[in-house]
């Protein structure tokens, strides 16, 4: 449930954010959402309704893989890892985002 002052992740950037978070090392779904919220200082929020379809979509595209690991708790947890393809995709999307945000900033500044 989004709270006051929080924004849903900008359309189209969720994949980029997920790839970036996963690139830091194996991580499970809930943690991905929390990390995005933490790092954005609670500005961005990721609902499970968009998080899991996105994760499955990226997994199908073979940008990330998953495996069940027994971690801190006794239950196995589904952990996601970036693949080589995913890394390449992350670089591409990062560059794309840079270009777009630079362009948008340029317009905002000079218009």
């Amino acid at each position: 449930m989004p709270r006051e002052g929080k924004k849903d992740v900008l359309l189209g950037t969720l994949d980029l954010l997920i790839l970036r978070v996963v690139s830091s090392g194996p991580i499970h779904g809930y943690a991905i959402a929390r990390r995005i919220e933490q790092i954005s200082e609670d500005v961005l929020t990721v609902q499970q309704g968009s998080l899991y379809p996105a994760l499955h979509r990226l997994e199908k595209k073979a940008f990330i893989t998953s495996d069940w690991q027994t971690g801190e708790t006794s239950k196995p947890v589904k952990m996601y890892t970036l693949t080589v393809d995913g890394n390449r995709q992350l670089e591409e999307e990062k560059k794309h985002w840079q270009d777009v945000s630079n362009a948008v900033n340029l317009v905002l500044r000079q218009a």
């Binding site: 779904g29 809930y30 499970q48 199908k60 595209k61 073979a62 239950k75 589904k78």
Partner: peptide, 28 residues
Amino acid sequence: INEFRNWVTALFRKDTLHDEFHAEMEQH
């Protein structure tokens, strides 16, 4: 090709996917 292979695998692993999904939600 990777994507297609994953799709086909998913078709055959439908039941597993179903179980894993529920386990993942449970974990969440």
